[in-house]
Simulated assay, not measured.
Amino acid sequence: MKNTITQQEANNRAEKYTQDAAASLTPPPRLEPLSRFDDTECDDPSDNGPLGRVYASRRYWLRDVPRERNAEVAEALVRWWTSHDFVVLSDKRPRENWISVENKNDGFSMSIQESVNGDLSLGATSPCVWPNGTPAPKPG
């Protein structure tokens, strides 16, 4: 079992990625909190990892973005992501503005999604991390 960044570092990085990506847009949108998870249990067995880890996640509505600019905003985010070591995992354009990416260096994922009402949301999620950065001691 390997050491990871701490839960606090995961929270800080998820927040920074979201803030920096939004700030790269012209004009920058107003961010309205949609969801925030600071220490959600990593219970997804798909990574075959040990129990006891957590992840951090942030999602914001991008306010003050005219709906007719949604495609332009999505494209601008793809440019920002690819220049910051993210790779596109899924891109449902032009059918819908829904794109997910992952950072090839630290495993953080980000996405932009368009709601049925045409509102955009932007989020970031950390990989599973140990709360203190080191594997929990085995009971016993």
Rank of each mutant, 00 (worst) to 15 (best):
D38H: 06
C42Y: 07
S100R: 10
P28V: 00
W61P: 01
N70L: 09
W130Y: 05
P135T: 00
Y55N: 05
D39K: 08
A10F: 06
L51K: 10
A71I: 03
P139C: 12
S111W: 14
N70Y: 09
V78R: 09
A71R: 08
R69G: 00
S24R: 11
V116D: 11
A136G: 14
R95A: 09
N105R: 09
N48Y: 14
P139F: 14
N48E: 12
A136N: 15
D119A: 13
I99W: 02
T6Q: 02
P27H: 05
S121M: 04
L89T: 08
R63G: 04
Q113H: 13
S35C: 03
T125G: 15
P137K: 15
R58M: 08
T18Q: 09
R58A: 07
N11I: 14
D119Y: 11
L51P: 12
A124D: 01
T40K: 08
Q113R: 12
N97F: 10
L77A: 03
R67E: 08
L62I: 04
N103E: 00
S46D: 09
W98A: 14
K92I: 00
L31Y: 08
V73T: 10
R79D: 00
M1R: 11
V87I: 05
D38S: 12
V129N: 05
V78Y: 01
A21F: 02
Q113I: 13
R93T: 07
I99M: 03
P135V: 00
Y17W: 09
N103A: 01
E72R: 13
N103D: 07
T125P: 07
G118M: 04
L25H: 09
Q7K: 14
S90E: 09
L31P: 12
D20H: 02
A10L: 04
D119C: 02
E114M: 13
S90R: 14
R36V: 09
A74D: 01
L62E: 00
D44T: 01
P139N: 12
K92G: 00
K138T: 15
R69I: 00
R13Y: 11
L62H: 04
E75K: 14
R30I: 13
R13T: 14
N103P: 04
P131Q: 12
D20R: 02
P28M: 01
G133I: 15
A71P: 06
D85V: 08
N70S: 12
